[in-house]
Simulated assay, not measured.
Amino acid sequence: MMMTERGMVAPAAGGSVLADFDAILAAAAPELAGHVQAMSFDADTGRLDVAPDAPAYGTQLRWRAPKLIAAANEKVSGANVRAVHVLAPAPAKAGLATAAATLAPQPTVPTAPVERRTPPEGYRRAIEAHRQAAWPSLADPAIAEAVERQTAAMRELSCRAFPEPDAVAGDAPAPIEQARAQRRRQAAASEAALRRARAERAARKGQNADDVIDRR
């Protein structure tokens, strides 16, 4: 008896789910209205196949699947929808006006060749004279000379303020090496003077000790 009832009721319920899918979608996810189509419904497994027209709507549809199932079972009596399967995005169906406009042949308008008129002789002579004429120089020679003198004076002041270092010969040591050598020589001279001072001090101490012994 149960199989008989399923055989009689399930197809009607499946057709109602597909027929009322727009109302079901509006109740569950109104923001997806017009972007999702119901493709098929398997009454035996309770699987509803739907196809969005863009991947973004497919993602939203997966999040709203529980609400869609609840709305389908509420709108259609005995539908028994258990799962929603989101198919690959399918483009929206074009309207009749769009399809007719696409299929209708467009009339071709013949294009007339563009005829170029020959310019008058006077116009051509004027253009040729304009091309051959040399443009006069707008610069004042006095101003140009003043600019050159000012540039030379600024260059001379810059050389005086920032003189370039003398060129170092190929065999001569670099300034840093010269400074290091000079410091080494100064250190050696200081050490030699310190040694002489120590020797003289020791010599004086030795003489004082001899004087003390002689007095005794």
Rank of each mutant, 00 (worst) to 15 (best):
M3I: 10
T4K: 06
E5V: 09
E5L: 13
R6W: 07
G7A: 13
V9A: 12
G14H: 06
A19V: 04
A19Y: 14
A19S: 14
A19N: 12
A19E: 12
L25D: 05
A26M: 10
A29V: 10
P30Y: 07
G34L: 12
H35R: 15
H35L: 15
Q37H: 11
F41C: 04
D44Y: 02
R47N: 01
L48G: 00
L61W: 05
L61Q: 07
R62V: 02
W63T: 06
R64K: 09
K67M: 08
N73R: 04
E74D: 12
G78R: 06
A79L: 03
H85R: 11
P91C: 04
L96R: 09
A97Q: 10
A97G: 05
A100W: 13
A100E: 05
A101Q: 11
T102R: 15
L103W: 04
P105A: 11
P105W: 01
P105Y: 05
T108R: 10
V109Y: 05
V114I: 12
R116T: 10
A126G: 09
A126K: 12
I127Y: 09
E128C: 03
E128P: 04
H130T: 10
H130S: 14
R131K: 09
R131C: 02
P136C: 02
S137N: 09
S137Y: 00
S137H: 00
D140I: 00
P141F: 01
A142R: 00
A144F: 00
Q150D: 08
T151Q: 10
A161T: 07
F162L: 13
F162Y: 14
E164L: 11
V168T: 13
A169P: 14
G170L: 15
G170S: 15
A172W: 15
A172Y: 13
A172F: 14
A174M: 15
I176Q: 15
I176Y: 11
A179Q: 15
R180V: 14
A181M: 14
Q182A: 15
R183P: 01
R185D: 05
R185A: 13
A187M: 09
S190M: 09
A192V: 04
R195M: 03
A197H: 05
A197M: 03
R198Q: 07
A199H: 08
E200L: 11
R201D: 10
G206A: 12
A209C: 03
D211A: 00
V212P: 01
I213D: 03
I213F: 00
I213P: 01
D214N: 01
